Amino acid sequence: MIYKQKIFTILLASILLVTGCGGKNSDNNKEQPRTAPQKLTIQFVTDPKEIQVGQETKLIATVAKGAEPVKDADVEMEIWRDGEEQHQKLKAAPDNKGGYVTKQTFAAAGSYHATIHTTTSEIHQMPTFDFQVGAVSASPNPPQPAHDEHHGNLGLEIQFNLNPKVKVNQETVLKVRLQQDHKPFTGADVHFEYWKTNAEKHDYTAAMEQTPGEYGVPVVLTEAGAYNVRVHVKKGELHDHKETTLQTE
């Protein structure tokens, strides 16, 4: 009788142990909620600060995540002169301190733009900065305003579809329709860049393809007034931009 009780006790303890382990493993196997990646802080400067035509110039981007420099990003600078369609892409080399550097010599004076394509294992951002080369003389045919500028690329058509009446602190959808040769342009990498007019801070967000050739993303604009919206489209060797404005109230 005592022997049978011992056997029963051992079996019961074994069952409880297996059940406990199984419950623990089940908890460990539960999918943990994903958190949005922390945005990078990206700055851009030139050395020298005042660039002369024909002078070799360092183009420097610094990348940080919070207070920590990001030393392992992939950084490419896309440079173009205001009003021109030709863009030049330059690979930037890391300095192991959170800085990424390339060199360029500019053959003409004018206003230039630099889009800093920055990719880490968690996030992709591509802020655009403006800088000046030499002295700009008055031109009888000035370039079109930025929101009308469209850098055409292989017949790509970009059409914004934005809400004309946007309320402050209410969700609105930034949407764009892409076509090439009158067919939906699918499978593109599309990002929206938006900022309050005359503000230095730019926000960036990736868009999802909602229907073939149509891309959108919901955002909340927190201030009343005019905003600039720039869409970046990339697929293979094709890279295009277009800019417009919207009003919040």
Rank of each mutant, 00 (worst) to 15 (best):
175 K>C: 06
212 P>H: 11
170 Q>A: 10
203 D>L: 10
189 D>R: 02
172 T>N: 08
214 E>F: 02
208 M>T: 15
217 V>Y: 06
172 T>A: 08
197 T>S: 13
199 A>D: 13
198 N>E: 14
184 P>W: 09
197 T>I: 14
202 H>C: 03
177 R>W: 02
215 Y>R: 07
213 G>D: 12
183 K>L: 10
218 P>L: 10
189 D>E: 14
209 E>D: 07
209 E>C: 06
210 Q>A: 10
183 K>Y: 10
189 D>M: 04
183 K>R: 15
186 T>S: 02
195 W>C: 08
195 W>E: 11
200 E>W: 08
187 G>I: 02
171 E>I: 07
214 E>I: 15
210 Q>Y: 05
198 N>Y: 09
204 Y>A: 02
193 E>C: 05
170 Q>W: 05
192 F>N: 01
197 T>V: 13
196 K>I: 12
170 Q>R: 11
188 A>P: 13
186 T>Y: 00
204 Y>K: 04
175 K>I: 01
190 V>W: 02
183 K>T: 12
170 Q>F: 02
190 V>Y: 05
189 D>F: 09
216 G>R: 04
179 Q>V: 06
205 T>Y: 09
209 E>L: 01
186 T>C: 01
216 G>A: 14
205 T>L: 14
216 G>I: 00
190 V>I: 14
194 Y>H: 13
200 E>P: 03
220 V>W: 09
214 E>P: 00
202 H>W: 03
202 H>I: 06
195 W>I: 07
178 L>Q: 03
211 T>M: 03
190 V>E: 02
206 A>W: 02
201 K>E: 12
189 D>I: 08
205 T>N: 11
202 H>N: 04
200 E>L: 13
205 T>P: 12
216 G>C: 04
196 K>W: 06
192 F>S: 01
197 T>P: 01
219 V>I: 13
211 T>G: 04
184 P>E: 09
186 T>E: 11
207 A>G: 14
187 G>D: 08
176 V>C: 03
215 Y>H: 10
207 A>Q: 09
199 A>K: 15
192 F>I: 03
213 G>Q: 10
190 V>T: 10
186 T>L: 00
178 L>F: 04
199 A>Q: 15
174 L>Q: 03
194 Y>R: 08
212 P>V: 09
186 T>N: 01
180 Q>R: 13
188 A>H: 02
203 D>H: 15
210 Q>L: 10
173 V>L: 08
201 K>V: 06
200 E>R: 13
196 K>S: 07
215 Y>S: 04
172 T>V: 11
215 Y>P: 01
183 K>F: 06
173 V>Q: 06
194 Y>G: 04
201 K>I: 08
